[in-house]
């Protein structure tokens, strides 16, 4: 499954990059976080549980943030069990400097297996896109609330 897209945030690039790397922000913006623990080298032991239309999506495995080039790019990898099957994916994230704004461009590919992949194939990419969209909107809200409290 390929997933590409972009999201423009109302914040300068360095701020967006730091936020994307922040464990606290990741923990609060990933969907249904039950566990998100740093085990070194940008690896996080992760358990996520979220639902859509009565279907429970569960991920248990590692998320790795690697090759960071602040404030321009990094790579995100995800490996583990996914709702009775497996998922293994890698994505690259690039931050485009637009002055007061930043465009986050992502492009990834994931191998997904198991029952969800077979029946849900048609809906998997849109569901992933929805999760990514929610993640970025949550991040943007976090940046906003941080800058608001800092300027007070």
């Amino acid at each position: 499954m390929k997933l590409t897209g972009n999201y423009t945030m109302k914040a300068p690039r360095a701020v967006v990059f730091d936020t994307l790397m922040s464990v606290d922000v990741l923990r609060s913006c990933l969907p249904g976080v039950e566990k998100f623990e740093h085990t070194g080298d940008g690896r996080y032991e992760t358990r996520l549980r979220a639902g859509l239309a009565g279907v429970k999506g569960e991920f248990a495995g590692t998320i790795t943030l690697r090759d960071p080039v602040p404030p321009v790019s990094y790579t995100l990898a995800m490996d583990g069990n996914f709702s009775g099957g497996f998922v293994s994916g890698v994505g690259s994230i690039r931050l485009e400097d637009l002055g007061a704004q930043t465009r986050v461009e992502y492009s990834g590919d994931a191998q997904v297996s198991g029952p969800l992949a077979s029946v849900g194939q048609r809906l998997m990419a849109p569901a992933a896109k929805m999760v990514v969209g929610k993640f970025f909107r949550c991040m943007e809200a976090q940046i906003e609330s941080r800058t608001n409290s800092a300027s007070r």
């Binding site: 239309a53 009565g54 279907v55 429970k56 709702s83 009775g84 029952p115 969800l116 029946v119 849900g120």
Partner: peptide
């Protein structure tokens, strides 16, 4: 709890145990 109507969307998900109401 889940409502069952025609079951054409819900039942396949239940049979694969993706939905477990």
């Amino acid at each position: 709890a889940k409502v069952l109507a025609g079951g054409h969307s819900l039942v396949p998900l239940m049979r694969l145990r993706l939905a477990t109401p």
